[in-house]
Nucleic acid binder design. Sequence first.
DNA 1: GGCGGGCGACGTACGCCGTACGCCCACGTT
DNA 2: AACGTGGGCGTACGGCGTACGTCGCCCGCC
Lengths: 258, 258
Amino acid sequence: MASERKATADPARSLAILWRTREPTSRSAGPGLSVDRIVRAAIDVADAEGLDALTMRRVGEALGVGTMSVYTYVPGKAELVAVMIDTAYGEMPRPALEGDWRARLERIARDNLALYQRHPWMLRAETTRPVLGPHLLAKYDHELGAVAGLGLTDVEMDAVLTLVLGHVKSSARAASEVVDLERETGMTEGQWWQSHAPWLETFLTPGAYPTASRVGTAAGQQHGAAYGPEYAFEFGLQRVLDGISVVVAERATASQPG
Amino acid sequence: MASERKATADPARSLAILWRTREPTSRSAGPGLSVDRIVRAAIDVADAEGLDALTMRRVGEALGVGTMSVYTYVPGKAELVAVMIDTAYGEMPRPALEGDWRARLERIARDNLALYQRHPWMLRAETTRPVLGPHLLAKYDHELGAVAGLGLTDVEMDAVLTLVLGHVKSSARAASEVVDLERETGMTEGQWWQSHAPWLETFLTPGAYPTASRVGTAAGQQHGAAYGPEYAFEFGLQRVLDGISVVVAERATASQPG
DNA sequence: GGCGGGCGACGTACGCCGTACGCCCACGTT
DNA sequence: AACGTGGGCGTACGGCGTACGTCGCCCGCC
């Protein structure tokens, strides 16, 4: 028999919270806490002040409630974050997918980017585990619709989605880092660079790494103009879609025997 | 005049540490601490026990030294992590790049993946800022060599690299999450899934999300076979390279006027 | 109308973390 | 031989997540 382990993770409990298997008790008095209210408050805090500011004490405070009261509805912070994530997925639009597969995937990429822009804390939330909430499933199902009927295998469909969403997340993370550095230091990207460049040149032996210097400067100037991350997103997205088109074309000809 | 801000970040100090602008004092007695020894100990801890186990106390302990002694050489934990990252970059191989651009980029992708596999903590280290150490620069310069001479603009070269490395990081993160979940829960991916699936089916109304269920199951079985992340990496890498080849081909014809 | 049980809310406390601050003492210098 | 400098460190503070035990209110029952 395996030893007990920490086993903080009780699947039944965690999933029950994600799926809200719980009639709202009508104990009408008191603050009337609930998973929903807690999650909404937590998301508000994280949106406004970042993930570092999201503490259990802060959540209780935001609800006008003691810190430990939150634990009545949520087993711990990890589970709270999980529900926050699933809730955020639930807010996403799921319009009927129009156009060809490329337009559909592009739309999905942009919707996901918008999600991360609205909730940058999602980019830093350590999940270590798929969330398995209702909204994640709905999102997954919806997004699979964009790559259905192209002759891809199930595993390929999943891989295509993973690739596109991975690119979105990478880009969003880069963009988000720029934003919260500016908030933390009170300097713009350009100002930060200008405060570091002279020191860097001091250490760098002149003439070393010419390529890196030239390209870095070029890219850095784009960043200074504050559209670096956006460019990386657009450029990468088109490349990724181009790459996917190769497989799609392969499958299309393969499935149409002459 | 802008108010002072927190300004924990002193560029001169941080960069000086990264570039080791400091003769090793010959105060031969005592433990003989140094930035190098501290960084090496810290990396050992993080490699062996993960980033969560990397505490300043733990680092001191590993060196047989008081916690606060570490602060003599490093202003804080953030800076320590920055030097750790730059040091890890320094360990990477930088072989002469052979073959066509595609082979070169592929090689770079695999080298970076190996780096992340050796030092998974790099995937979780919050930097919020490029490290600007000597080894990052060397790495950047080396990797730019893979996309030089293709007719791309400087900004495009940077974007190509960003795209490829972003994909590597995404894939590595996914793989790493699988690994440390298994460590945390003591279950394999398959076992974890099997302990959750029955509960999930309880909540899910039968017949809902047929596509998601089917594809998820297919992909999940791959994960159970423990090669899901590897597949995602390979599949995505080829797609990304295919996509890049489109731009490369464009530039090649454009730069060869008839 | 009275009452008892259950549960939501919470106060306190513990063991962690990063790190500010100031002391001490061994050394290289004079 | 005396000195002062700086490396090493002990203590302490504020903040975190959260285990645990208690209290008082509301609801269903008699």
